[in-house]
Amino acid sequence: MNFYVIFALIFCGGVQAYDRTRCWTSGNNKPAQWWSQGEVITRGKYYYECRMGQLEPLGCLSPQDQQVPIGNTFRQDDYEFICRLGSDGYLEFGYNACVGSDGRTYQKGETWTDAKNMYYYRCRDDGRVVKAIIEGCIAHDKQKRVPLGESDDYQGYTYKCQQKSTGIVQMCSVGCVHEGRRYSVGEQYRDGDYVFYCKIKAGKCSKQCIGCVVEGKNVFDGQRFKRDGTTYQCEIRPSAHRIRAVGCAITENGRDINKVIGCRWYENNYDWKIEKTCEASGTDSAQVKVVGCIYKYKGFDRIFLEPGKYTIWNLPKSKESVGLSCRKTADSAEMTIFDVSKLEQNTSGLQYDMPRGK
C-alpha cells in the first residue's frame, strides 16, 4: 500500500467519524451546511436539534414565531392548536380545542355562550379539525337553550331560533300563544267575548282584537246585532274594544228596524199619538221609553200629557171642554178623550196636570 492510499483512508475515516456528530441540512434561512451537535435548526414552522448527525424534532413555531415544544399548545383565530408528532413521525399542527369569547378553552363536545348571552356554541370534531359552531339561541328567560330551528314560548308569544341571511342568530317572533295553544301569524282565536288574530309588524308579533263573539258567531268592527230589544255594535279601537248598546230594536209597520239612542218617533192614531224615545239603560242596554201622549185637534198637535196624568182643556173659540188622559199600557201608552161629566171614572189613579201645548 503506497502513501497516498494510506493517507486517503485515514482522511476519509476521520471525516466519517466527525460527521456522525454533525448534521447536514438547510435551516435558519441558510442553505444546506454542516450543523454541530446540539445546535437548534428552524425549518419552516418547525424546529429541531442536531443530535448525533440526525435532526431531532423539538417543536413548532407559533404565528408569532414563538417556540412551542411537542405536546404544548398555542392559540390562533379562536382555536387552540397542539404541536405533535404525526403517525408518520413528522411534526404537525393539530386542532386541539375551541376558544370562547371569554378566553376559556372548550374541548370537543363542550358548549358555551356568547358575551351577550344571546346564543351558544358547541366545539365540534370535524375530522382533522375542530369547529366552533353556533348551535342555538338562549331563550328570553336567559336560562333555557333553544337549538337552531326550534321554538320556545315566552309571555304569550312564540319565538323561533333562526339564523338570518346576514349570519346573525337570534330568537325571532313567529307567533302568539293563548291558553297554551300556539297561533301562527294571521290565525284567529277567541278570548271571551272577543276575536283576536296574531299580527306581525316590524318583526314583532302582537295580538290584535278584530271583532266580538255573539251567540257563537264572529261579529266584526262596526257590525250590529240585536238582543233582548237592544241593538248593539261591536267597536274595536286601538286602545280599547267593547260591545256597545247603540239603539232599540223595534218592529214598525211589520219591519224590524233600529232606533238609535236619543231619537224620538211617533205612533199615530186618528186624533192622538204616542211619542216615544230610545234611551240608554245602564251601560250595556237600551230601552224604549214612552215620552207622552199628544192630542190632535183639527189636524194640529195641541196638548201634551205625560203617562199617568190627565187634564181638562177648553176647546178654542168654544164654551165646551174635553177631558184627556194618558195611561201606560204593557209596552206603550194610550190616550183617552172623554166628556168632563165622566171625569171620575176616567181619571182613577191618574194625576192632574195643567194643559200644556206641544
Rank of each mutant, 00 (worst) to 15 (best):
residue 7 F to L: 15
residue 7 F to G: 13
residue 16 Q to W: 15
residue 28 N to Q: 15
residue 31 P to H: 14
residue 31 P to W: 10
residue 54 Q to C: 09
residue 60 C to V: 05
residue 69 P to E: 06
residue 70 I to N: 06
residue 70 I to C: 10
residue 72 N to M: 11
residue 76 Q to W: 13
residue 81 F to R: 02
residue 90 Y to G: 12
residue 91 L to S: 08
residue 92 E to F: 04
residue 96 N to D: 13
residue 99 V to G: 01
residue 105 T to S: 13
residue 108 K to S: 11
residue 108 K to W: 00
residue 115 A to C: 00
residue 117 N to P: 00
residue 118 M to E: 12
residue 124 R to C: 01
residue 128 R to P: 13
residue 131 K to P: 00
residue 136 G to E: 03
residue 141 D to G: 09
residue 151 S to N: 08
residue 152 D to V: 05
residue 155 Q to W: 00
residue 157 Y to E: 08
residue 160 K to E: 13
residue 171 M to K: 04
residue 174 V to G: 03
residue 177 V to L: 07
residue 178 H to F: 12
residue 180 G to P: 09
residue 186 G to W: 07
residue 193 D to W: 01
residue 194 Y to A: 05
residue 195 V to C: 04
residue 198 C to Q: 06
residue 201 K to L: 10
residue 202 A to G: 05
residue 210 I to G: 02
residue 214 V to I: 09
residue 218 N to Q: 08
residue 221 D to H: 14
residue 228 D to A: 12
residue 230 T to K: 06
residue 232 Y to L: 09
residue 243 I to H: 05
residue 245 A to S: 13
residue 248 C to Q: 02
residue 254 G to H: 10
residue 255 R to L: 13
residue 267 E to A: 07
residue 273 K to I: 00
residue 275 E to F: 08
residue 280 A to I: 05
residue 283 T to D: 13
residue 296 K to D: 07
residue 298 K to P: 00
residue 300 F to L: 10
residue 305 L to V: 10
residue 311 T to E: 09
residue 314 N to H: 14
residue 317 K to N: 15
residue 323 G to F: 03
residue 326 C to G: 08
residue 332 S to I: 02
residue 337 I to F: 04
residue 337 I to H: 02
residue 344 E to F: 07
residue 345 Q to N: 03
residue 355 P to H: 01
residue 355 P to F: 02
